[in-house]
Design a protein around this nucleic acid. Structure first.
Lengths: 187, 187
DNA sequence: GTCTATACGGCGATAGAC
DNA sequence: GTCTATCGCCGTATAGAC
């Protein structure tokens, strides 16, 4: 594999992730991705043997992204402030969330309908989030209720993103986040 | 317009709604819809001048469905029991919600990305739900907080459906519904 | 009004030159 | 490894027979 193969492959995945976030997987063509990545159209098939493999790679990228954020927040002193850091990150992105929805949530929604290997792969995204949230709630002292609280947190956030996206109103995310912060701080 | 034109049109919309719920709008073809509705493929264009118009009609059908449910629940004695009736209906459908997601939520998620007229149209679905919820919370005595509580209810339900669909685990909806019921009853 | 046949465009995928 | 040219399929939409 040549020196900049990785670079081209990365550029393709990055372009795909952005386009899929904006339009949805089904509405993004190979040509669209190639153009945005500045790679000749037909050449995409040197890096991915099928269209679905691009979706696969995008899920892996998204997973790496959130795990990277989690590791960063793990450095914070206590579990509550880690969860708050997550909510702050969402709040900072509320404009984009209202415009295009949650990058994770929309991927899961679309691939879940698709079914097959992509649905299986996308499932790992929510699992990673639930696991990390559960760890924080447990470390905070929630005991048995930790997982249930983790589910409630993810569920609320995803629902708020969907609402905000549909109504194109970022206040629908920020409002819910504000309540969630109060809930966590009061634990 | 002939006697059974309405019947054929209705059959097409019904078939489209079911298929779109299962696979998503983008993955359902005119031929698929026609076949399920037992109508010749090319003939669909007598009833709908473009593909998007079918999506439009499906949104209108879904809107009529939920408004019909709301009217039914309006007959119940008090606002709390009306909201509980809504949650009971979800609970009864939890299996299907885990398999295909929320029929309203998935439509909104997909059409919101699409943008354009379909996004605008699909927006009315959540608005109708928020309005009815708000009315119930206000009648219950929530005052200023009614709208915020309505948003929280819809948001939680939609998030739970998305989670359950992605993980194909109906307990993720029923669990959240159980908590929401307790919240409403404690108001 | 109803249905068939087909035009047309676009997309995924491949073959093969360099 | 990289890129171009192109094939073949499928889906939307239309023209026009009945």
């Amino acid at each position: 594999m040549p020196y900049d193969s990785q670079s081209k492959r990365s550029r393709l995945i990055e372009a795909a992730a952005a386009l899929i976030y904006e339009r949805g997987f089904r509405d993004v063509t190979i040509a669209d991705i190639a153009e945005r990545a500045q790679v000749p159209t037909g050449n995409v098939y040197y890096y991915f043997k099928a269209r679905d493999d691009i979706g696969f790679a995008v899920v892996e990228t998204r997973l790496a992204e959130i795990q990277s954020s989690f590791r960063e927040w793990d450095a914070l002193e206590n579990p509550k402030s880690r969860l708050i850091a997550f909510l702050n990150a969402l709040e900072a992105n509320s404009q984009e969330l209202a415009e295009h929805g949650c990058p994770i949530g929309s991927l899961c929604a679309e691939f879940s309908k698709t079914g097959g290997a992509l649905a299986d792969k996308s499932r790992t995204l929510f699992i990673a989030m639930i696991d990390w949230f559960t760890t924080q709630f447990r470390a905070q002292g929630s005991g048995e209720g930790a997982r249930s609280q983790a589910l409630h947190l993810l569920s609320s956030v995803q629902g708020a993103c969907l609402l905000a996206h549909s109504q194109r109103d970022s206040s629908l995310v920020t409002g819910e986040i504000c309540q969630l912060k109060r809930w966590i701080e009061a634990l």
